[in-house]
Each structure stands twice: as C-alpha cells, then as structure tokens.
C-alpha cells in the first residue's frame, strides 16, 4: 500500500500532508500526556517494531506468502496515538532510506497507514469490545478491527488514486498522474485487500495478541472510555467520501476510461500530444528514436542521446562484472 511518487499529483500530496498536520500535532500532544518525556525512546523502538513487522512474511494458502501492516496491532498494544507516531517514523525511514513509498506522497501514505488504519481499526476494536465485555467479544473486535482497518486504508488509497484522472488532465484529456478512475482503482485496490491482505492482517493480529496476552498480559494499552466517540467522527468523515464512490459505480468496471479515450481520438485530438513534443504514442516504444528527441534542437537531442548511451553502457558493464562476482555468493537461507 506504499504509494510511490508520481502516482498522485503534487497538489494531492500537499493536501494529504496538510491533513496530517493536525493529526500529528494531536498525536504528539496525546503521547506527551500519556507517556513522560523520558520515555520517548519507546516511540523509536515502537517504530522499529512496526518497520520489522512489515518484513515478516506469513504463509498464505497455496504456498505463497504475504505480510501484515500491523497498524491495528500497534494501536491495540500502544494506543492509537503512539501507533500513529511509530508508523509515521517507520514510513519516513522506508521512504527516505529504502525507497519504499514516495517522498512527496509521504503525507498520503501517512494518512492511509498511520492515521486511518490504526485509528479506524482501534475504534472498531474498542466499540465491539466495550459492547460485549467478554473475551470472545474482544477477539471478535481484534479480527473485525484489523480487517476493517486495512480495508478502509486501502479504500482511502484507492480514492486518492481514483480522483487523479478527474482532477488532473492535460489539454488533450490525458491523465497526468494515476490514469485510472475510481471505477478501476477501487476494485483493483479493494478486491485483493478484502480477500487476502485483510485476512492476513486479521489472523496475524489476533494470533500476536493471543500470544502477548498469554505471555505478558500487563502490556496492553488502556484507553479511556469516552474516546469511543471519535469513531463516529471518523465514520462521518468516510461518509463524506462515499459520494466519490457512488460517482465511480456509474461506469461499470471494465469499461473504464474508454469514453474519454474515444473522445480524444474521434475529436482528432490525437495530435494534441504534439505540443508536448510527441507525434504518436508509439514513438515512445524506443525511448529516443533516431537519436533525436522531438521538440528539442537536433544537436541537443544528439547530445542527450549520447550521454544516455554512454551512461547506460557503463552501467551495463558494471552490472555485468558484478553478476560474475555474485555467482559464488548469495548465501541466505
């Protein structure tokens, strides 16, 4: 669910980051209240745990594997606010140091995985737990909470993707960022999450909670009762999103975008690309056809191609020499 850069427009990214600012501020204030200043290392260690949890592969039917995000788990263990900060730090390290998830999209990724996922998951868990007050109810809460948490987060990501073609098009009607409308992005994101990732998340979360409960029952986060109300706010917020979802259901999935494209072609707008220096889409199949790039002065095009060519050759030979060395190695497992 880590969104790379350029899938979302910079303005969407900015909006999502802006949305995260009050969340972060609130989370920091809450965490300061809940844990004393000197216990700050706890947050770093929590972030490290959250980072590693995403590395743990769990078996799926058929011998394949998947991994959990663990947002709800962290919220149950440490409280949603501390979970929010820990996941934020983990995401930051993934983006900055491991190239996993974009830098500009950092705000959006945090919104989905550090805010929506732990908070939604946690409050669903709390709602069910407080209403049933039995052990069974608690586990039901864990399973539903973590399942709902990851799916709602995936839905948010899908909506972020899906609104891109609505909002950002160039003169020729071509999408500038993620080209898939809601009618594609929502099923594409949600189906695998509903069927696989959500189940993995729920089962893994429940199994870890069972283990920790047995081994060290004192370690759980004890939230105040009245906080349950916040879940209604979150639900209300999501309801605001649903009109977007309804918009999406208008076109059946499979036909997506076809109209727009037809419009572009029938309108004789295929040449609309020319202002961008492109004649036809297929010219792209070779990155720099004829050693000249359209729209650039010929000399500059040659120069650019030459530099690219030399660079690619050097990289190629370096990789080749490395492969030879590597053959003997590879010693994990």
């Amino acid at each position: 669910m880590h969104i790379p850069d350029n899938y979302l427009s910079p303005s969407t990214c900015a909006a999502m980051s802006a949305a995260m600012v009050p969340v972060w501020t609130k989370a920091i204030r809450k965490v300061k209240e809940e844990i004393p200043k000197v216990k700050i290392p706890l947050l770093g260690v929590g972030a490290a745990f959250s980072f590693l949890l995403m590395m743990f592969n769990v078996p799926l039917p058929g011998g394949t594997t998947g991994h959990a995000v663990g947002g709800t788990l962290l919220a149950i263990l440490m409280g949603p606010y501390a979970a929010c900060i820990s996941v934020t730090v983990a995401l930051f390290i993934q983006a900055l140091l491991f190239g996993d998830g974009g830098i500009l999209a950092f705000g959006a990724n945090c919104f989905n995985m550090a805010f929506v996922l732990p908070f939604f998951g946690y409050y669903i868990y709390k709602l069910i737990k407080d209403h049933s007050r039995s052990e069974k109810g608690e586990y039901l809460g864990i399973i539903f909470g973590s399942y709902a948490g990851i799916n709602v987060a995936a839905l948010c990501a899908a909506i972020e993707f899906g609104i891109q073609p609505l909002l950002f098009q160039d003169g020729a009607g071509q999408a500038l960022y993620c080209p898939y409308p809601l009618s594609v992005s929502i099923p594409a994101m949600l189906i695998p999450h509903l069927l696989v990732a959500g189940v993995v998340e729920a089962v893994f979360t429940a199994a870890i909670v069972v283990y920790i409960k047995k081994v060290s029952p004192g370690t759980f986060y004890k939230g105040a009762k009245e906080k349950t109300k916040a879940v209604y706010g979150l639900v209300a917020g999501l309801i605001c999103f649903t009109p977007l979802g309804l918009l999406a259901t208008g076109t059946a999935w499979g036909e997506w975008g076809a109209d727009e494209i037809k419009e572009v072609v029938s309108g004789g707008n295929a040449l609309g690309f020319v202002p961008h220096g492109m004649k036809e889409g297929f010219d792209f199949s070779a990155v720099m056809p004829d050693y000249a790039v359209n729209g650039l002065p010929e000399v500059a095009g040659y120069l650019l191609s030459a530099v690219a060519g030399v660079a690619v050759m050097i990289i190629f030979f370096k990789v080749l020499s490395n492969l030879k060395k590597d053959k003997a190695g590879n010693n994990v497992g």
Partner: peptide
C-alpha cells in the same frame, strides 16, 4: 500451526523491544 509460530516470534520481538526501550530510558535517565 505456522501462524502461531509466527505470532510467537512477532510477540516475543515486541516484548523484547519493550524491555529494550525501558532499559534505554533508564540508561538515558
């Protein structure tokens, strides 16, 4: 019970991390 083995590992890592964090802030204090 692959899931419970994995959960045992993840759970132990969590408890361990909690212990480490406590040690760390005591040391820092």
């Amino acid at each position: 019970s692959k899931y419970s083995s994995m959960a045992g590992i993840a759970g132990t890592v969590f408890l361990q991390s909690k212990e480490m964090a406590e040690d760390m802030y005591h040391a820092m204090e």
